[in-house]
Amino acid sequence: MLAGAAAIFGLVMILLGLSFRNRRSSGEEAGQIRVWILGLGLGFPALVLGALLAYGLVIGERLVPRQGVEAVQVSAQARRWEWRFTYADAPALETTGVLHIPAGRPVDIAITTADVIHSFWVPRLAGKLDAIPGHTNTLRLEADAPGTYQGVSAEFSGAGYDGFAFEVVVHDNSGWAAFLRGQPE
């Protein structure tokens, strides 16, 4: 996308620069309108944008939670300024500021808020999804490898917003099982 944008930018700049040449483009106004407005103004963006849009929609479709897949269910509730996570597989368990998930399995995170709007964002795992009062938004993500990932809340929420962060700990199979039993390694 960056390369394409740079190419288009370069093209516009070259056309802009060439207009300062001494030689005048001759021809009638009708011809100029065909080139500049119909060709470059209408046709060119329509083509590029059509392709880009299709690409975006296909990628977007892949990121949407699909039915029929067995996904781990967790809940994330935000409040100013901490996240609380609960786990469908271990109802007694609640963690604050750290979300635990298994690696290699799809996870559905049900995002809610107890006060103002927040946004759940773990840049390396998925895009943002907002926590809106009264609504539950579900984010599907899947971590390939165990490890620790940084997450932040990405919707301005007042005075404590700067440091409003959390961690995602991704476990391998045995680690996940241990966590659910309440015995983290």
Binding site: L15, L16, S19, Q32, W36, I37, L40, G41, F44
Partner: peptide, 16 residues
Amino acid sequence: VPTGVQIFAWIGTMWK
């Protein structure tokens, strides 16, 4: 698209 039409109409004006 309509933004593009305006931009290129202006560049065309410069060429003209």
